[in-house]
C-alpha cells in the first residue's frame, strides 16, 4: 500500500505568502440545466493557502460551481483546474486532492464518530495505525476527542459539523471545498468554523473555497467572488470591494420609498434607490449629507441608518437587488 503515502504527501507544503500561485482556476465556465443557464462564462482564480468565499443568493449558481469543482457535475462549456488537475478529464486525481464539506453532513448517524472516520479513511486508501493516529489528531484538534465513541446521532449540529470537517481532512487535501458550511449552525458556531478554517490556512497551507449566502461570513475571508444569476459580478478582497463604494451608506425608512428616492435624486443630486422597502443612498460624506436630508424632507423620514458600506452594499451596487433577493427562480436542481 505504498500508494496511500503518495496521496497523503501531495500538496501539503505551504508556500511562502510572497510567491503564492493560483490553486484553483476557472475559465469560461458555463452550465445549463435544460433551459436554465446556471453558470454563464465564469472566470476566477483562487490563491493557494487563502480563504475564498463565493457569495450570492440562492439560485445564483454557486452550488453548481461547487458541484463542478468537486467533479460531481460536468460543465456544459469551459473548464477548471484544482491543484493543477483538470476537473473534467482527471476526475479521480482531483478527488484525491480535495476535501469536501457538504451542506448537509454526510455522516452516518448509526455509526460512532470513529467508525465514520475509519470508513472515510478507507475510501481514501488509509487504514490501520496511520489512520487511527490521523483520526485522533483531527478529533482533538477540533475538540471532539471526548466524543470519539459516541453515535453521531447523539451529537449537536455544531459538533457534527466539526466531525464533518475532520472527515474531509483525513487524507490531507490541499484544497477544501465547502458548500454553505454554516447551514444549521448558530452564530457562535459559525465564527468558530471560520476560525478553524483560518487556522488550517495558516498552519497547514490549506486553501478553503466556500459558498455562502451570508455577507458577514464572506467578509471574514481573504477574497470574495460575488455571484448573481450565474455570473461572477465582482471579485476582490472584502476591503477592496467595499472601497469601490467609498464613503458612507445611508438607509432611510419611509412609507413611500419610491417617491422619496426620486425626490432625493432630483433635489439633492445624490444616488438614491428604493431597495427592499427602504431608500438607500451612497455618498462620500455621510455626516454632512445627513442633516440636509432630514431638514429637506420633514415628516417623510421615519428613521435613518448611517454606516460604512458592507458586502451587501457592494452586492446591491453591482446587481440592483439584495442578497436575500427572491426575484429569481431556484435554478439549481439536482
Amino acid at each position: 500500500m505504498v500508494v496511500c503515502e503518495q496521496v497523503v504527501a501531495d500538496h501539503r507544503e505551504p508556500k511562502p505568502r510572497a510567491c503564492r500561485a493560483d490553486i484553483v482556476t476557472v475559465r469560461g465556465l458555463t452550465h445549463r440545466y435544460a433551459e436554465n443557464l446556471a453558470l454563464s462564462d465564469v472566470d476566477l482564480a483562487v490563491e493557494e493557502a487563502s480563504l475564498f468565499a463565493l457569495l450570492g443568493p440562492n439560485g445564483c449558481g454557486k452550488t453548481t460551481l461547487f458541484k463542478i469543482l468537486t467533479t460531481m457535475l460536468r460543465p456544459t462549456a469551459g473548464g477548471a483546474t484544482v491543484a493543477g488537475v483538470d476537473v473534467v478529464t482527471q476526475r479521480a486525481a482531483v478527488r484525491r486532492r480535495i476535501g469536501i464539506v457538504f451542506q448537509h453532513p454526510s455522516l452516518d448517524d448509526k455509526l460512532t464518530v470513529r467508525e465514520n472516520l475509519v470508513h472515510q479513511g478507507n475510501l481514501y486508501g488509509l487504514f490501520g495505525k496511520p489512520l487511527a493516529t490521523r483520526i485522533d489528531e483531527l478529533l482533538s484538534r477540533f475538540g471532539v476527542a471526548s466524543r470519539t465513541n459516541d453515535f453521531v446521532e447523539k451529537l449537536s449540529g455544531g459538533l457534527k459539523r466539526r466531525v464533518e470537517l475532520a472527515k474531509s481532512l483525513l487524507h490531507r487535501p490541499g484544497v477544501l471545498i465547502l458548500d454553505e458550511p454554516s447551514t444549521g449552525l448558530d452564530p457562535g458556531a459559525r465564527l468558530e468554523l471560520i476560525a478553524q478554517l483560518r487556522e488550517l490556512r495558516d498552519s497547514d497551507g490549506v486553501t478553503c473555497l466556500m459558498t455562502t449566502h451570508l455577507m458577514d461570513e464572506a467578509d471574514r475571508c481573504d477574497c470574495v467572488g460575488l455571484m448573481d444569476r450565474g455570473r461572477l459580478v465582482a471579485l476582490d478582497t472584502p476591503s477592496a470591494l467595499k472601497a469601490t463604494i467609498g464613503g458612507d451608506v445611508l438607509t432611510v425608512d419611509t412609507l413611500d420609498p419610491r417617491a422619496l428616492a426620486a425626490d432625493i435624486t432630483f433635489r439633492l443630486a445624490a444616488v438614491a434607490e428604493a431597495v427592499d422597502g427602504a431608500v438607500r443612498i451612497e455618498c462620500s460624506r455621510g455626516h454632512e449629507f445627513l442633516p440636509t436630508l432630514i431638514e429637506m424632507f420633514p415628516g417623510r423620514i421615519q428613521s435613518v441608518k448611517i454606516g460604512k458600506p458592507t458586502l451587501e452594499d457592494v452586492f446591491l451596487h453591482a446587481t440592483g437587488h439584495s442578497l436575500a433577493g427572491t426575484t429569481q427562480p431556484e435554478a439549481e436542481v439536482n
Binding site: 478527488r95 457538504f102 453532513p105 454526510s106 452516518d108
Partner: peptide, 13 residues
C-alpha cells in the same frame, strides 16, 4: 437522502 452517499460518490473510490 441522509447525505451519506454523497461523500462516497465524491470520493476517488
Amino acid at each position: 437522502k441522509a447525505g451519506f452517499l454523497q461523500a462516497v460518490i465524491a470520493s476517488p473510490v
